[in-house]
Every structure is written in C-alpha cells, then in structure tokens.
Simulated scan of single mutants.
Amino acid sequence: MTLVKFNNGQKNRVANPWFNDVFDSILNDTYFTDKMVTKTPAVNIAETDNHFHIEMAAPGLSKEDFKISLDKNVLSVSVDKKSENIEEGKKYSKKEFVYNSFVRSFTLPESADQLNIEAEYTDGVLKLAVAKKEEAKFQTREIAVK
C-alpha cells in the first residue's frame, strides 16, 4: 500500500514563494525514497497447472549473490552485497560504499512440492519454479450424464 500526498494545488507559502519552489524540486518525496529507503525488488507471481512461478527483478547482481532458503513452508530469497569503489585523483581520494541487501519471503501453499524447487537468474531476473504436488495438479475429465 502506498500513501499519496495531495496538496490540491495549494502550496505552503510561508516565507517566500521562490524559496518553497526550489526546495520542492530538491527535497521532494522521490529524493528521500530513492536515496534513503532500502528497496526491495518487484515480484510477479503466477500459477500454471503444474507450477507456481515467482519472478523477481534484481538487476546488477550475480547468481552467487542470492541465498534462497526454505524453512517449513516459507521460501526466503535474500541478498547481502557490499561493493567498494575507490577513485584516486590529483590531491583527493574518494571512497564510495554501496550496500545492497533485501529479504523477500513467500509462504508456500500446502499444494507446493517443497522438494522440487528450481531457481534461475538471467538478464537481471531471478526465476523460481515451485512444482505442485501430484494430487494438487488440475485434472480435467469429462463427466457423463446419466
């Protein structure tokens, strides 16, 4: 759920109108949410006759960065990555530390076969395929009218 602020076209013009307009563009909500809030990747979940499919958008990672675990009926995907970039220049040195970490957990239904889970990471998308138990697969048949 996302909270959206509406100002109905009115701005708080306490001191100077120019002052508020400048800070509206610099210190808006997108700046804070992009830079200061930990992001979790977007997920698509689909169901077919034989599998549950989970697709997670996680670009910029490698398959070694992911830790996928199953605890009872909770499937968890986590990443904890630290990278350090150092640039040397004339009379200065700059260090940038970047931490990428998240955990997404999914409660599997009883119809999921917990022994048959596959994961694949290609083109920035982690794809998980959770097979269904044989008795839970959709079975179609024709019923004769008596």
Score class of each variant (00 low, 15 high):
M1N: 14
T2E: 13
V4E: 05
V4N: 09
V4C: 01
N7V: 05
G9C: 01
G9Q: 04
Q10D: 06
Q10T: 15
N12W: 06
V14L: 10
V14A: 11
P17K: 14
P17C: 07
F19M: 12
F19E: 12
D21I: 06
D24L: 05
D24M: 09
S25P: 00
S25T: 15
I26T: 12
N28V: 09
N28Y: 03
D29K: 13
T30R: 14
Y31S: 13
F32S: 06
D34T: 14
M36P: 00
V37C: 01
V37M: 08
V37P: 03
T38K: 13
K39W: 13
T40A: 03
T40N: 08
P41K: 05
E47N: 13
T48K: 10
T48C: 03
D49L: 09
H51Q: 13
H53A: 10
H53D: 10
I54Y: 02
M56T: 04
M56R: 02
P59Q: 05
P59F: 02
S62W: 01
S62P: 04
K63S: 10
E64Q: 12
F66M: 02
F66T: 02
K67W: 00
S69Y: 03
L70M: 09
D71C: 04
V74S: 07
L75M: 12
S76M: 03
V77L: 05
V77A: 05
K81Y: 02
K81T: 11
K82H: 15
K82G: 06
S83K: 12
S83Y: 03
E84W: 06
E84V: 11
N85K: 14
N85V: 13
I86V: 10
E87Y: 09
K91E: 05
K91P: 00
S93L: 11
S93K: 15
K94Y: 07
K94P: 05
K94G: 08
K94W: 04
K95D: 08
E96T: 15
E96P: 07
E96W: 01
F97D: 10
V98I: 11
Y99W: 08
S101I: 06
F102H: 12
S105K: 14
S105V: 07
L108Q: 05
N116C: 09
I117T: 05
I117D: 02
E118T: 15
A119R: 14
A119I: 06
Y121W: 04
Y121T: 04
Y121D: 08
D123W: 04
G124A: 07
G124W: 03
L126A: 02
K127P: 06
K127L: 00
L128R: 03
L128D: 04
A129L: 09
A129H: 04
K132I: 02
E135C: 08
F138H: 13
T140G: 15
T140L: 09
R141Q: 14
R141N: 14
E142D: 05
E142N: 12
V145A: 08
K146F: 00
K146Q: 08
K146W: 00
K146P: 13
